[in-house]
Design a protein around this nucleic acid. Structure first.
Lengths: 335, 335
DNA sequence: CTGAAAGCGCTAACAA
DNA sequence: TTGTTAGCGCTTTCAG
């Protein structure tokens, strides 16, 4: 059994209350006593039991981060951002992965009901089609911040980039490079990010005066093999396609793999642009043009908002809708 | 305030003890009572306060994962493996990043002293040069499993791959491809993995009858810019070098970037092989030959061992030293 | 089968 | 300045 406040009390012939106050540097304890207590505490390597204090003053100094996956560089970097501010604020970070599965998301959120965490950062899964679990959490007044993949119908803080704008820029870029028929690889159309990126795509096509024949939205799957097959079928079937937008990183790398297999030359036969945070996009063959989100920044901002809400009870998360711009990095895949 | 066991008791005119037992499906409660309790619990969406139970029966159903970083595909995949078994076992996962900083590692481990977590999975930072913090944790009987980057002087479970063998295979591969002077890019020579991989490198060179002139170990840094500069200086300075082994993923991608800048042609002028889990290694320019560790598997195995220890008090972690083989994927960077 | 009560480690109101 | 005590929500004897 580890050492507790009681042991210190016994050792120093003081009451537990005195010890507790001394450790908190309370003004009602004499300097000498504080000294003695602190000294012994250090000596015995005392650390308070976190759960006992949680139980008392309701507050776990812990937040939850719920992510679809971690194998995507966006989420890796976002975790980095989140963890960096959590560590600074003395908070602990519970990480949960939904693996893009709606049911998992539901069962994960159930665990947050009873004080396990003080707040939640969430990027929703691509298969989430209904938001009761989120409403429930929200109604229980759990501080909640969405990042990247938000749920629009929940009225709380959201940190994202202007996806419509980004989708527009990506499409415009391909059009300027001479593409006539651009396929938009979509992950799941319920997803806020996909919806908006697609909107930008549609806007750009319309602006260019292209009709519906030139519009091509390809629904991919959260399962990798399935997506691969879908992309392959599309590229094989319609050799008119001369541009591809990968709405998430994975779909772009898959497109590369498919092109390898089908001996389609990028960028000569097909130009590719992707929403991606791959640091090595420049080292791909050919180097990949990307729309890059400020992933670390998004994570950091979301976490900062959450902590602000945790620190000040009157801070209003509802008012916070932060948008951080994405950047276009032009590389050889669209040249 | 959320709903507690007391509320159920009041509502049903029962004692809290009865409720508690009913919820645990105790044999000493009548079926009817159980029924009533369970029904109301579901209705009111009751969930036990995790910290209250932790406080009672000591056990947090939480483990800690301590990693150097998460931007490396090895660690991303390892988290995946860990999280998958944790979720299955009903455990929660606290993630901590050291960012390769010794001091952070120390301060993170301090937090585990008093029951916050039931066990720890750890891959040590590259700047960790002294192991008191680990010894302390170990002596407090915290179940501890090292994965990938282990600390040899702590006598507990370790899950890794045979790095010596892998280093040997990598070097042998380059030699077979005709390399005469192979640089080994090392991350930090204290690190178990680096040490072993380097040992394999040395062994292979010796076996090939090469002398010390042909041996070249380049110490890189945990700071990216510094490493880049170091690699650049080496490749610029000694044009004899015709092979490079990246002992960690980042060093290999940096080598690619450096070669880009210096207009060194891979594989014609320089062959590159790397310890890496990049799923897109095949899409690099040129595709990268890798020694790939079973990252997901390592994470999963480490977590499984830990849970076994948590579930059976007599399970002996000391006895467990698991080695999972790495695989060589030959690609164009060494052709 | 059900309930009363003690206590996990800590904090905070109230006494002394 | 220090100590006493109640209680956070739950589990677990031990009595009824």
């Amino acid at each position: 059994m580890s050492i507790g406040i009681k042991d210190l009390a016994k050792e120093l012939q003081l009451s537990v209350a005195t010890i507790s106050k001394a450790l908190k540097d309370s003004h009602e304890i004499s300097p000498e006593t504080k000294e003695r207590v602190l000294k012994l505490a250090k000596e015995l390597n005392y650390t308070p039991n976190p759960y006992a204090s949680s139980l008392r003053h309701r507050g776990s100094k812990t937040i939850a981060v719920v992510l679809p996956e971690v194998a995507d560089s966006f989420f890796s970097m976002a975790i980095n951002g989140i963890e960096s501010v959590a560590q600074e604020k003395g908070y602990h970070v519970l990480v949960y992965l939904t693996h893009e599965q709606f049911e998992r998301e539901i069962s994960i959120l159930k665990d947050f009901q009873n004080g396990r965490v003080d707040g939640v950062l969430l990027s929703i899964s691509s298969t989430t089609c209904e938001y009761n679990h989120l409403h429930k959490l929200y109604e229980e007044n759990m501080p909640l911040v969405f990042f990247d993949r938000v749920c629009e119908e929940i009225n709380t803080a959201k940190v994202q980039t202007d996806d419509t704008q980004a989708g527009y820029v990506a499409t415009k870029h391909l059009l300027e490079k001479g593409c006539k028929k651009i396929a938009f690889l979509s992950m799941n159309s319920n997803l806020s990010i996909t919806k908006h990126r697609m909107q930008g795509y549609v806007d750009a096509l319309k602006e260019a005066g292209l009709n519906d024949t030139q519009k091509l939205v390809v629904e991919c799957d959260s399962n990798d093999e399935v997506s691969y097959a879908i992309i392959k079928r599309v590229l094989e079937g319609d050799r008119q396609i001369d541009g591809v937008i990968g709405s998430v990183e994975k779909l772009a790398t898959m497109t590369y793999a498919v092109c390898d297999e089908l001996l389609i030359k990028i960028p000569q036969q097909l130009k590719v642009i992707a929403f991606s945070n791959l640091q090595i996009a420049g080292l791909l063959n050919p180097s990949l043009t990307t729309i890059t989100q400020p992933a670390f920044e998004i994570g950091k901002t979301a976490a900062t908002l959450l902590f602000r809400a945790l620190e000040k009870r009157n801070f209003d998360l509802k008012a916070e809708h932060i948008s951080i711009p994405s950047l276009l990095f032009e590389r050889k895949s669209t040249s």
